[in-house]
Structure formats: structure tokens, C-alpha cells
Amino acid sequence: MSVTVTGKKTLVVIRHTPYGSSLARAALDAAMAMAAFEQAIDILFLGDGVLHLMPDQDSAAIGVNNVGKLLASLPLYDIDSVYVDAASAAKYRIATYDTPIAGQFLDQAQIQQLLSRNDHLLGF
């Protein structure tokens, strides 16, 4: 994990579907832009946000970037901690071994702890 000048950590919370609105892309852009400027960023996919982690995405025909592929580049931005709401993932039958990027699957109590552990929260 990178260390920032201030040493503060930001958790970006992504709760909306990847292709339903421009929110999701704004969230990833914000996370990657902050990481590009050496801020310490973690990401939590919560609720419908877990749909970012669907395998086999192919968005070419709708003319937007492939979010699955984009997620795979997060380690190159030193965004190494990706967290996933396990209950929502289970609802959509998204398995730990099948996601475009490896994530840590968390239960409700662990999510609550994660939220109180970060210095800044950014919800999308």
C-alpha cells in the first residue's frame, strides 16, 4: 500500500450498476485519478456495485469501456485492496474465483468495521 504525504486513506464505495448510469465510471475515474496522484485508495463494492465484478463482460457494442477490463488494471495504480459485499455477491451468484480482479469478500460486520477504519469515505 502506498503512503501519502498525509498518510490518510480513502475508501471509495461503489453501489450502483456498472453500465446503468455514468456514476460507476465517475467512481472508478475518481479512484484512479486519486491513485495516480499517490493517494492511498481502497475500493468497496456494495449492493448492486458488486455487478462490476461479473465475469465475461463485453461492452464493445454499447460503446463504453469494458469495466471488467478496467478493474483488472487497478493493481497498476497500486489499488491493491478491493473489498466485496459477500451477501450481495451471493445474490447475483458472483463467485470469488470468477471476478476480473481478486477481492476480499466481507460480511456485514466486516463492512461496518471497514467503514469506520478509513479516514475518508467517498460514496458513488
Binding site: R15, L46, G47, D48, Q108, I111, L115
Partner: peptide, 15 residues
């Protein structure tokens, strides 16, 4: 809304 459900699930005592 999903926001309502997600929010309630994420709230910890003291929030």
C-alpha cells in the same frame, strides 16, 4: 430503494 437497504446494513452502533 437499494440505497436504503445498503445503508441500514452498513450502519454500526455509534454512527
Amino acid at each position: 430503494s437499494a440505497a436504503f437497504r445498503d445503508c441500514l446494513a452498513a450502519i454500526a452502533p455509534g454512527d
